[in-house]
Each structure stands twice: as structure tokens, then as C-alpha cells.
Amino acid sequence: MFRKCVAVAAAVAGAVALGTGTAGAAATTFGEGTYLVGTHIEPGVYQSQWSDGCYWERLSGLSGELDDIIANDFASGRQFVQIYSSDLAFSSDFCGTWTRLADPTPVAPEPYVAPYVAPAAPPPAPPFPPELIVPAIGSAVVGSAVLPTVAQMMVAGSLMP
């Protein structure tokens, strides 16, 4: 355990001593080792050189414990890693040079255009003119039990157009 802490501390000190970029600026390219995010390297998407047996780790701590590993991989070929500003450090072995890829250009969303909806058709015309409705009601109730009520309404003017 103590040897792991000393090894990690030495790797971080070595990265600082090697000068991984200009003073005060985090680097966008780096090689093997352990680098503090935001101090030694910038957050972003990085790609490695083609390699056989590349091992990398995103770290939340530098204790050397397994709990410090946020994500890791051991693979061959070109590797792509998203390093977040919330990561404490990034470490790699046998991966060659890592190069930060350009941030994608933000694309403005397309303005929303509502789909065309045809106007509703007008309601159908009545089958006969409205002025014929009142006489039709009167003729339909002749001889029925409601005739006296309808007659009183007609006299009062409530059924007349």
C-alpha cells in the first residue's frame, strides 16, 4: 500500500518536473504517466496512438486503491477517452501520445415549424332552408298530444322565425 502511494506520488511529481505544457496552462497532448486534470491536462476527449496493450485509468483519487478508478481499459488499437473536469487525474501506460480532439462545433437547433393543417371544412348546409323548419314542426304535431302546447308557443312567438 505504501509503495503504491509513493509510486503514484512519484509519477505525479515526474509529470510536474517534465513540464507537460506551458506554465499555468494545462496541456492538450501528453504521454505515459499520471496527470492531474485541470492542472496538467485539460478535460475533453482524447485519442491515443495505435498501440498494443494500452492501459488507461480515469481516477477520483491517488491512494492507489481500486476505489479510486472511475473507469479503465486495457486494449489494443487506438483508444478514445472522455476525461471530465470532475476527474482528479488520468493515468496511462503503453498508449503512446494522447491528443485532445477539438470540441464539436455547437449546432443551432432548427427552428420549429408546425406542420401544415388544412382548415376544417365548413359544416354542411341544412337539407332545407331554416324558414321552413317552423311550418314543418307545426305540420308534424298536428293530431298529436303536444298540439295544444305547440299552438300556445306559436301564439306567444317563441317558435316563429
Rank of each mutant, 00 (worst) to 15 (best):
F2L: 14
R3H: 10
K4W: 07
A7R: 15
V8H: 00
A10C: 10
A10E: 10
A11V: 04
V12D: 08
A13T: 10
L18R: 13
T20E: 12
A23N: 01
A23C: 03
G24H: 02
A25V: 13
T29M: 07
G31C: 01
E32G: 06
T34Q: 07
L36C: 03
V37F: 13
G38Q: 13
T39L: 12
E42I: 02
E42L: 14
E42K: 14
P43H: 06
G44V: 01
Q47E: 14
Q49E: 15
Q49D: 15
S51H: 13
S51P: 09
C54L: 01
Y55P: 00
R58W: 04
S60A: 15
G61V: 00
G61C: 00
L62K: 02
L62T: 06
S63W: 11
E65M: 06
E65F: 12
L66K: 12
L66N: 12
D67F: 12
D68Y: 09
I70H: 09
A71K: 15
N72G: 00
N72W: 07
D73A: 15
F74H: 13
A75V: 13
S76Y: 08
G77N: 09
R78I: 15
F80S: 12
V81P: 07
Q82L: 11
Q82C: 05
Y84M: 03
Y84Q: 04
Y84R: 05
S85N: 09
S85G: 10
S86N: 06
D87M: 10
F90S: 08
F90Q: 08
D93I: 10
D93Y: 11
C95M: 07
G96A: 07
G96R: 08
W98C: 06
W98N: 01
T99E: 10
R100G: 07
A102V: 09
D103I: 09
P104G: 01
P104L: 05
T105Q: 01
P106I: 02
A108G: 03
A108M: 05
P111N: 00
Y112S: 10
V113I: 15
A114T: 09
V117N: 12
A118M: 01
A121C: 03
P122F: 06
P122H: 07
P122W: 04
P123Q: 14
P123H: 13
P124T: 02
P124I: 02
P126T: 04
P127Q: 02
F128V: 11
P130N: 05
L132R: 03
L132C: 00
V134D: 07
P135Y: 00
I137C: 00
S139R: 04
A140N: 00
V142G: 02
V142S: 08
V142T: 08
A145R: 03
V146Q: 04
T149V: 11
V150K: 01
Q152N: 11
Q152L: 14
V155Y: 07
A156D: 13
G157Y: 10
G157P: 08
G157E: 12
S158Y: 03
S158P: 00
L159G: 01
M160G: 07
P161Q: 14
P161T: 14
